[in-house]
Design a protein around this nucleic acid. Sequence first.
DNA 1: CGGAGTACTGACCAAATGGCCGGTACCCCA
DNA 2: TGGGGTACCGGCCATTTGGTCAGTACTCCG
Lengths: 124, 124
Amino acid sequence: MPPRKGPYICGIDAALDVVSGKWKGLVLWELHAHGTRRFAELRRALPGVSEKMLTQHLRQMEEDDLIHRKVYAEVPPKVEYTLTETGAALNEALQPLGEWGRDRIRRGRLEVVGDPDTSASPTS
Amino acid sequence: MPPRKGPYICGIDAALDVVSGKWKGLVLWELHAHGTRRFAELRRALPGVSEKMLTQHLRQMEEDDLIHRKVYAEVPPKVEYTLTETGAALNEALQPLGEWGRDRIRRGRLEVVGDPDTSASPTS
DNA sequence: CGGAGTACTGACCAAATGGCCGGTACCCCA
DNA sequence: TGGGGTACCGGCCATTTGGTCAGTACTCCG
């Protein structure tokens, strides 16, 4: 694994690079919503995620300094994940995007079909 | 191609779904910066993109109602791409993310290694 | 008349991504 | 004593993603 692909053209793709991965957005979201989550809690929060992918994503995010991993040397293993400052900042930056996404979901992912020209006769 | 994968857990992944793709972020960026671009202009703006991928991405973005495609029935083909309102809104929503990404690039993708404990001796 | 440009499309292939399953080491509960 | 839970790791495989290359139809330029 190369140290995060290549030279970036603009900030957008640097950021997108870091959040691309089927579950990373959700992990960020979970951690943002709950502050601290254990491995199994995250797994349960992400319906359908495999343990392998979850660990893999978590490790990458740790390497990218988005999350912090705290291991307790206890007998039934216990690991807690939290957002780092950078991760929290990312989440802040993701808020408008989430807003946009929610809007999009609300409209059924489709703009109304009518174009401005035909808007002379509304709903009748 | 299913109509944009599945039920989304939150707005974030709905949005990420729509911008994931090696060049989509850059296309958005280009269109935002220039307003209107022709196919070949976009190709030249994205160093390394293949024509196939570019068309593919553009078609998906059109289907997602992010961009508008205007075909001129001229002899040497001419097609112009512009952002739709939705696309422009997406771009707005991406600004903070771009900001975050630029920050990240500036710091060389790495937080300073020193931890708070050792910060007693500053730069002297 | 040949070469380049325009905006694509499709075949074929390689790499990346992610899913399934099995194993680990140890504990608690019935 | 056996099953479930904890937090993983690794192999194998299917799907997805993206790249390379060739072709299209027609025009402009030298």
